[in-house]
Design a protein around this nucleic acid. Sequence first.
DNA 1: GTCTATAAGGTGATAGAC
DNA 2: GTCTATCACCTTATAGAC
Lengths: 204, 204
Amino acid sequence: MGHGQGQDRPDTRTRIQDAATVLFRRNGYAGTGLKQIAAEADAPFGSIYHFFPGGKQQLTEETVRTAGAAYSCMVLALLDSVADPVESVTHAFATAADDLEATGYADACPIATVALEVASTNETLRIATADVFTEWIAAGEQWFARWVPDPGTARSLAQSLIMILEGAFVLARAARDREPLCAAGRSMAALLRSAIEEAGRPSA
Amino acid sequence: MGHGQGQDRPDTRTRIQDAATVLFRRNGYAGTGLKQIAAEADAPFGSIYHFFPGGKQQLTEETVRTAGAAYSCMVLALLDSVADPVESVTHAFATAADDLEATGYADACPIATVALEVASTNETLRIATADVFTEWIAAGEQWFARWVPDPGTARSLAQSLIMILEGAFVLARAARDREPLCAAGRSMAALLRSAIEEAGRPSA
DNA sequence: GTCTATAAGGTGATAGAC
DNA sequence: GTCTATCACCTTATAGAC
């Protein structure tokens, strides 16, 4: 434990990054102030620039990459928790709906709002969000490859899952209704079922 | 034409709203300033409060509702321009990819960025975006109902089309790549094809 | 009705005390 | 290294001149 902390409270740097993750996810990049982040993290304002000399952009880039990787791990673990692939996809969307509802329709995708905000305004952050999505697609492709032999089909399924999930988050947060996520789960299950069926009859 | 304008330039109020539509779509709600809108519209700053006494919120609400309705009309006209439904969906996604590429990956959904930004922070604007999405789903359901008899299936297809399009816009803008929109078109075509097939054999 | 000047407060960022 | 005070700028909004 090194020089010891005396409490189980995370260090200042971690608290700042965690607070930034929460606030960017709910209020977006432009809608979140550094003072607000410092307050939420219970850290002095100057500490932000001590740990993130690059200012708001550096803090956001690290937040996007870290939260993006964590979300990927979380979703893959969720998908692995059910044996049947079609049931697993359905279950994953239902769980996403549960989480969204439980957080008052606040905690959806950790980077989507920022991604749309910076796509045309900040090249460094745009690339950070693009890298995260690329990693998600690669991970999803690997998962689908277990059930669908053709790599192109597996990749297409991974892309579609991410896209329909992102779109469902937009509609569900706007309407404060879980139904879009349920509909998304049904469509994604149908898509996967078709792909598995197709692979089952290698006639074509 | 009433008291005449002398030029074909739109009136001040329209110019302000058009400028706001463009800027909110590209930079989002919090990322766009009223001064920036006035400059882009070539209108004096005070005119914004003259025509929109409710300030930024009122301007945004009208912009969201107007741009949302216009986008719906545009997409429906596009879908009606091709006879075969599956080909039409494929064509619509390809056209969306063309438009996005032509605008430097700036002009995607006119309200998605704002929708995510305000979902947890501004109830009035959240409802405005939710109303727009509701209208889109209803219009899409009517269109799909021409090819799929079951209303629930038609509604599900409309939801899925909007969700996968929204998600594809997020990925395409982040990556500056049209491929996500192409993949989305293929998935949506497959979904529709299955639904039409299913309706064709009324055995189940 | 069109437009300018200003108000009150928030922003990201920095300098410097301790 | 932790934290405070301050900077210059920008924000939304308003008051009032023309």
